[in-house]
Write a protein that binds this DNA or RNA. Structure first.
Lengths: 335, 335
DNA sequence: TCAGTACTCTTAATCGATTTCGAGTTTACT
DNA sequence: AGTAAACTCGAAATCGATTAAGAGTACTGA
């Protein structure tokens, strides 16, 4: 409520002096600074962020674009963990977070970001092909993308290639050769990398993958996984191990197996992806790749803030964050 | 980038006229309005939210305070769903969301909210006893709390009393008389209501509850539930049915039962609380009370926006949102 | 003693909008 | 025709900060 004007009056100095005193400029005497700071404290002075932003074009506010098709990006385990980590890191550095949206199509994402004057934007969990997202990414605003990389733009990416490789090697090491994979939406970079790595790793291991072993599912969609699991089991030569899009979708598969009275892992082995806490509590404990949501969010925030504060010297990194194999009990040797 | 000044120049009118034209004031001719709007479109004009906020003290920005002790409020299923619903509703009405925090203690929540000039604040998932939260709630800022009610302040509350009552009646109807309850943190209103309702309902049903049947656990804490479940089973006269703090924590209990080779529900019945999607996919499907996160978030947003836009006429409602019993397969008649 | 520095502080412009008040023009009515 | 009412529009103040440029003092050294 109290503005610099009141402090100035109380101290008998000009507003300019107050501003400089509070910003600890060199051309104000220590004595005056002390006086001003004291008055500011007494009056409960709070800087007015708009006035400051208006003049400086800096808001210490970061835009967050986390909008999936269903408008439920926040309820998405993986992304909510990434966002939480991003938030903690950003706040430690004095930045706040504001959600970017398209205001019922009355503004594009970029326009909204400019309207709110955010210093930078982190993007995840969106359709990266959409024109609006592309416009935002290619604007002059500092932008970091998560799990998708644009040319010449920094990105933080969960290392799905190595992750899938480890997972495949893991089940292979148990003797599995008939490995099926129900994957997520095909247009995403995440899926492409995982599927590509799945094929490549098995090829390196000398295992042939029948076309019908690879099914196009959907992330976080247990029902679809239920159906696709049944399809896989109905094959003349069914797999001995099934990999799922993610830990949550995996539940659908588990239910399909239970309905057929197949025991996990005695009759069939399964694995997920994500490393959700819940998956680790299931019985049997799910073999999976834990994605390091903590590091991903942290790196994204650090990278974005670095771009904002040091636009000249920032390296436009493409950081790859390794996952971690969580062995679990859902995989054993095939019969 | 383009400001009103440029539009004014292009149209040969004053900045004041541009402002009034864009805000559709009555004292500007239709002709001029058209001209101004056209120029605004052509120049890609975007209003400057800071300048506007500076003058009007309105930001169309809502503060969100969702900070639990572990700084992981966003990863909390229940709250992330509520927040998502709140976000969708607020955005539909033209409001944006900014997170409130205490900036590493350099500002209180209230100060932060003022600094960012939010029009109102929604509070959930915090320690409502903390001085900072109380300060915020009792300020002149419009505030809505979720799952906790302060005197004279609007709140949206999941109806835990009726919910627990229904749940108890449900298991009672199967014949259970030895019903244990592992509840969450005792200092929260949610827990108090649930525990109170648990006792009252059973009393009404004429069932006595041994003290040792009610254990103090913790929300979202499967490990603790694992331990407490074992304690309950070790009692000389163990319960035939156990209620858990929430669906997630329930997993710990399930594991404890499995470790003792107790079948659910044949040997013992269990129930959760929340209605998480995952719980409904478990085998056996979990009996639980589904909290209507969608409505809770929606009501909270509507209430808050109403307070902001109609400060005089708003009724300070305390909305209670009923839950819904999800029967599940985890409860059956005791042996 | 006087110019040159160093130090401290103020004046005033500025960021981009909103809004009050008044001025000028047109229309209406007697 | 003359006065009042109705329309349009603009000048200028204002919101609360930042910042360049300059003014006034005091001190230094020749």
């Amino acid at each position: 409520m109290a503005s610099m004007k009141e402090i100035a009056r109380q101290c008998g100095v000009s507003v300019a002096t107050v501003s400089k005193a509070l910003n600890d400029q060199h051309d104000i005497s220590e004595e005056t600074k002390k006086k001003v700071r004291k008055a500011a404290r007494e009056l409960g002075y709070l800087p007015n962020s708009f006035a400051r932003a208006l003049k400086t074009n800096r808001t210490f506010n970061l835009g967050v674009l986390f909008v999936d098709e269903a408008m439920s990006g926040l309820t998405h385990d993986y992304f909510s963990h990434v966002l939480n980590s991003f938030k903690v890191t950003a706040e430690e550095q004095g930045y706040d977070l504001t959600f970017i949206n398209s205001r019922k199509r009355r503004m594009t994402y970029l326009e909204h970001a400019r309207y709110r004057g955010v210093d930078g934007v982190v993007i995840a969990c969106v359709n990266f092909d959409s024109a609006e997202v592309v416009e935002l990414v290619h604007s002059d605003l500092p932008v970091v993308t998560i799990d998708h990389s644009f040319n010449d733009k920094p990105a933080v990416i969960s290392d799905n290639i190595t992750g899938m490789k480890e997972l495949v090697n893991y089940v292979y090491s148990f003797g599995h050769r008939k490995i099926a994979y129900i994957h997520g939406e095909e247009h995403t970079a995440v899926t492409k990398n995982r599927v590509g790595s799945f094929y490549r790793t098995l090829k390196e291991l000398g295992v042939e993958v029948p076309e019908e072993y690879v099914r196009s599912g959907s992330y976080r969609n247990p029902d679809l996984c239920y159906r696709l699991t049944n399809e896989l089991l109905d094959l003349p030569d069914p797999p001995t191990c099934i990999l799922y899009p993610d830990d949550f979708a995996c539940i659908g598969g588990i239910n399909a197996l239970k309905d057929r009275n197949l025991r996990i892992p005695e009759d069939i082995s399964i694995a997920g992806y994500d490393g959700l806490e819940a998956g680790q509590l299931l019985d049997p404990k799910l073999a999976t790749i834990e994605q390091d949501t903590n590091l991903i969010g942290k790196y994204a925030a650090e990278q974005l803030i670095d771009m904002i504060e040091h636009p000249k010297t920032t390296l436009f990194d493409r950081v790859s964050v390794p996952g971690r194999l969580l062995p679990g009990k859902s995989v054993t040797s095939p019969k």
